[in-house]
Design a protein around this nucleic acid. Structure first.
Lengths: 219, 219
DNA sequence: TGAATAGTGTCTTTCAGACAATATGCC
DNA sequence: GGCATATTGTCTGAAAGACACTATTCA
């Protein structure tokens, strides 16, 4: 009976997304120890005694990227008894979104290596991490359609065509420019900065920014 | 350092909903031991060593209701370090939906008492269970608008007016009968059984049933 | 003036929401 | 006939989606 109630370990795994070069990317770390030594895995670690789940996720995020002030959302908890060969480990997964400007990874701490991977070029993943990535991707695709979470992926100021590109990258389909602009502006979440961005041999674009950093659900 | 990584306990809490007499109800259990002895709480318990989170939730559900074949969905994990005065306890919450026919509660096992409570007549709850109930209610309200999860709340065969009543109860507002029927039938998830239900001094109603038990997301 | 991206409006279709009258069965 | 619930359709407004041309800058 005592055996039945043996305590599991609890970890957080943080799925850190960004959009870069029209690709949706995620941070993976190379495992330095067994099991799955040498395999790539979602960054994560044990929840410490006096921190909440979200605090643990923020700490892991900060360890990888040095950034704390990003969009963070709890996703789902994975607790199959056999998901970790070392013993019972339950993990609470989190979704984090980074603007494409903050892409420099910190010199890794307890892992040998950390790298950005395009979602369509993922290596084989350790544990059940493939399933976790798929869950996160599904949530991201669903949620950009009824919320403004893309603000977490954008720099402070951006062109509407950049924002459209982020939507297209995540959804994996082309969107009509006129309809996209009509829709996104009608939501009233963006404001023009008045500044124009001259970027090449073509007409300059107005720079926009989000009015609020808060997450807004449409409808 | 060893202290930092001390393992937490992990529980599941199951929010078991039904609709009865036009009221949305949930099962609560009276705590027989400290802390919060005598207070009402969401039914739940420790995750056993060799069961998944979902299996643990099904076991708790079965202990309370004797029923296993119901809609069950993981909601959210609550892990504030101070949420349980006895020590670190992380809980994974689940939403369960019961048809209004399965309302008899089992003679309680490790708890003194279990009762159905209308959501608008809840007693003071133990731990952070008020917050958990509110989270579940929010999820339920959101999700009935874009999925067929109400099938979990309906008996096998039912009148459209009963289904409409369930929607109205959960959303807390009256719906237009013609628009409701138009919408729900246009989804193509229901089929008429051909049977009529004679129930009183008025015109009998067609009985409908869900074509599939699977959860379907609209759009 | 050619290349590249920015910016803009109309039409059609679909869906949500407001709204009321007739049908059926029991007493 | 009176009562209670079942069943049905139209109109309007809003939003989604298809669709093409002009504007601006630089080389």
């Amino acid at each position: 009976m005592a055996d039945t109630y043996e305590k599991p370990s609890v970890t957080v795994d943080v799925l850190i997304f960004t959009v870069q070069e029209n690709k949706l990317k995620i941070i993976l770390v190379k495992r330095a120890i067994e099991p799955f030594k040498g395999s790539w895995a979602i960054p994560g670690g044990f929840v410490h005694k006096n921190e909440s789940l979200e605090e643990a996720a923020l700490r892991e995020l900060s360890e990888e990227t040095g950034v704390r002030d990003v969009y963070l959302e709890q996703l789902y908890s994975f607790g199959d008894p056999k998901r970790d060969p070392r013993g019972r480990v339950i993990t609470v997964s989190f979704l984090a979104l980074l603007p494409s400007e903050n892409l420099k990874l910190k010199g890794s701490t307890d892992v040998t290596d950390a790298k950005w991977f395009a979602l369509n070029e993922l290596p084989t993943l350790a544990f059940d991490h493939k399933k976790i990535v798929e869950y996160a991707l599904g949530r991201l695709r669903t949620k950009i359609q009824y919320s403004n979470i893309t603000h977490g992926l954008m720099p402070d100021e951006f062109r509407l065509s950049e924002l459209q590109g982020v939507y297209e990258t995540i959804l994996g389909e082309k969107l009509d420019k006129r309809n996209f602009r009509k829709k996104i502006l009608s939501l009233g979440l963006l404001k023009p900065t008045g500044k124009m961005e001259v970027e090449g041999a073509h007409r300059p674009a107005m720079l926009y920014k989000f009015k609020t950093k808060e997450t807004v659900l449409f409808d």
